[in-house]
Design a protein around this nucleic acid. Structure first.
Length: 334
DNA sequence: GATTAGGAATAGG
DNA sequence: CCTATTCCTAATC
């Protein structure tokens, strides 16, 4: 699937079907469906769970996100936060400030067994979705080499994010209209101002930024208070090779992609993880990702593969014993 | 037609 | 100095 936030697929046109009604889906769903141009990721587990585990009722993303954890996020973020805003927009159009509380459901309305089970799965689903969103953002951050918190972005980061989001939604290029803005500037802008700068996709960009803002807020507040949220906290604390400071090497980048089959399994995957043998399934996509990461818009597989070949004599990557197209092997598998 | 292998020049940190 | 990028030729699948 294409991650809502970090998704990137290109040639894929597969549209994950969640048990949600189309008109009730906003960004989250929209992303998933609006596969960006390149990515190709698998269908997320939560989607499957949704279909099977909660078949009886349709949830909108907003519904799903309106749980305690999401709700807290919504409230605190003063209603301007992304997740919140969209929920409100969808859910209860005229009462934006009212955060539906779960209690109300439990207590009065449908006390039946069904209701309880629904609530339970609802919570699971909700936390799952929130977790997925955070995960996607985190993945995108590593990919773009930017921080999750938009307020920390410089103008260059903003442009990167713009490029990324445009790709994700297949939007026309609008980055120029935001050229001189920092992340703080961006965050301070209203949806209207976004539209003024980009009539075509200002709304989408603004909505997407809202999600990032909310996620950053969540990371900030919730992680401080021990949150046993959804098991997603580790997503933010996990430290890997990308934190080493030095400019990332291609082989490190490939390893990172391989570590996330969930997101990139359709583009690059292990054939034999123990031996470090992997296959590039979608050469164009992997090259595109690499180009994004290195700010090399003209990157393609021809050049990426040349870089891989440089590793031959260095003993970092080699061709496997039985040479196959698009298959390589790490000389020192971890 | 895409992929592979490497030489060679150049960028860029 | 180093790695990566760019460009290119020739061979291979």
């Amino acid at each position: 699937m294409s991650n809502p936030i970090s998704g990137l697929p290109e040639s894929t046109d597969f549209v994950p079907c969640i048990g949600m009604t189309e008109d009730s889906l906003i960004l989250l769903e929209r992303n998933r469906c609006s596969v960006d141009p390149w990515d190709t990721v698998d269908i997320k587990p939560n989607i499957e769970v949704l279909e099977r585990g909660v078949p009886s009722f349709y949830l909108s993303c907003y519904d799903m996100l309106l749980t305690e954890e999401a709700a807290c996020l919504v409230k605190v973020s003063d209603g301007s936060s992304a997740l919140a805003v969209h929920m409100n927009r969808m859910e209860s159009r005229e009462e934006p400030e009212q955060c539906p509380v779960i209690d109300s459901q439990e207590n009065g309305l449908s006390p039946g067994l069904e209701g309880q089970m629904e609530d339970r799965s609802l919570e699971q689903v909700q936390s799952m979705v929130v977790g997925e969103v955070l995960k996607d953002i985190e993945t995108a951050c590593k990919l773009l080499n930017i921080t999750p918190d938009p307020t920390e972005w410089n103008t260059g980061n903003v442009q990167k994010w713009m490029l990324w989001t445009e790709h994700l939604y297949r939007l026309p290029h609008a980055g120029k209209a935001f050229q001189e803005l920092t992340g703080k500037d961006l965050c301070a802008m209203s949806e209207e101002e976004f539209r003024q700068r980009s009539p075509l996709c200002g709304d989408t960009l603004h909505a997407h930024l809202d999600i990032w803002k909310s996620a950053a807020w969540m990371k900030d507040k919730c992680s401080a208070v021990d949150t046993k949220t959804t098991g997603s906290e580790e997503l933010w604390s996990e430290a890997d090779s990308s934190c080493s400071g030095q400019p990332i090497h291609l082989w490190q980048f490939l390893r990172e992609l391989l570590l996330k089959p969930h997101n990139y399994g359709r583009s690059i995957r292990w054939l034999n993880k123990e031996k470090g043998i992997f296959k590039i399934e979608d050469s164009a996509h992997v090259a595109k990702l690499w180009g994004l990461r290195k700010n090399r818009p003209a990157m393609n597989y021809d050049k990426l593969s040349r870089s891989i070949r440089q590793y031959y004599k260095k003993g970092i990557i080699r061709k496997p014993d039985v040479s196959q197209r698009l298959v390589y092997q790490f000389v020192h598998p971890v």
